[in-house]
Simulated scan of single mutants.
Amino acid sequence: MDQDQRHLHASSFGAAAAAYAEHRPDYAHAAVRWALDGAPGRLFGPRVLDLGAGTGKLTATLLALGVDVVAVEPDPAMLVELRRSLPTVRALSGSAESIPLPDSSVDAVLCGNSLHWFDMAVAGPEIARVLAPGGVLAGLWNLLDDRVEWVAGLARVSGAAAIGPRDTPDSWRAETAGAHLPGTGGPARFGAAEQDLFPHGQPRTAESLVATLATRAGVLVMPDAQRETALGRIRAFLAARPETADGEFTLPMLTGVLRTCRT
């Protein structure tokens, strides 16, 4: 998408901040541990920046793992939700392109479903500035496991607006291979990127899954009538599937991690 479209999509979440906080999933603990393990010797108790923290989904996972975390988020409405749900966390207004932290002040920068929104030409040097030498930069994405037949059907019915190119395992690997990270040359030097996938799941009902997909940027920017048509198509699919028609089920997911270290 062009720059104007990227800005429209990236700025769409604030209007749905409460729904985002209620319905978006957390992150697989094993995935977060693997991301942090990219900083040698710093797995236990590192200083971590959650950059583009949204409503604090990744922040909460980091807290559960016992790390020292500071959150930075540019959208005021998302930041309000983060501070409401995690009142003990240091949560700052800022962006990847202008991080309100001192030089070499964190051991890891983690980005939950946010790295692809950054202007890396500006954000790369800024991330390098706040990272201690040897520190890790990692992006995490929650993916739908379309190796499961009904999930593959859901992806087809939902369309690219609701389930985009980073939302299923194979397409995520292709989209993030070498992408969204600072280059290996110049003053902001980072090593080769690594990818891995970790099993995850989210308890859902048909209606709460529809509500989750309704918080995707591609859906949020749709005209009202088009959005209702798309969500109605998803509801009909879920109502027709035995796995999702009645009561609560576990949505099969994976957390994908892309990590690199500052050299």
Score class of each variant (00 low, 15 high):
1 M>F: 06
5 Q>R: 14
5 Q>W: 10
6 R>E: 05
10 A>P: 00
12 S>R: 05
15 A>Y: 07
21 A>G: 12
23 H>F: 14
36 L>T: 04
37 D>P: 12
39 A>E: 09
41 G>V: 05
42 R>C: 14
43 L>A: 13
44 F>L: 14
45 G>P: 11
47 R>M: 12
49 L>G: 07
53 A>R: 01
53 A>S: 15
55 T>F: 05
59 T>R: 08
65 L>H: 04
69 V>D: 00
70 V>I: 15
75 D>S: 07
76 P>A: 08
77 A>S: 15
79 L>P: 01
85 S>Y: 13
85 S>A: 15
86 L>I: 10
86 L>P: 10
88 T>D: 15
90 R>G: 09
91 A>R: 01
96 A>Y: 04
97 E>Y: 04
97 E>A: 11
108 A>H: 03
110 L>T: 03
110 L>M: 12
114 S>G: 14
120 M>E: 11
124 G>M: 05
127 I>Q: 01
132 A>I: 08
132 A>K: 14
134 G>M: 03
136 V>I: 11
138 A>D: 02
138 A>K: 03
145 D>M: 06
148 V>E: 12
148 V>F: 08
154 L>K: 01
156 R>Y: 03
156 R>T: 14
157 V>Q: 09
162 A>L: 13
162 A>S: 05
165 P>Y: 02
172 W>C: 02
174 A>Q: 14
174 A>L: 14
174 A>C: 11
177 A>I: 06
178 G>I: 06
183 G>L: 09
189 R>E: 14
193 A>Y: 02
193 A>T: 14
194 E>L: 11
196 D>G: 14
197 L>V: 05
198 F>I: 02
201 G>Q: 09
204 R>K: 12
209 L>V: 07
210 V>P: 01
211 A>S: 13
212 T>P: 02
214 A>G: 09
216 R>G: 00
221 V>K: 01
222 M>H: 02
224 D>G: 09
232 G>N: 06
234 I>R: 00
237 F>H: 07
240 A>W: 00
241 R>T: 08
242 P>Y: 02
245 A>I: 08
252 P>S: 07
254 L>W: 04
263 T>N: 10
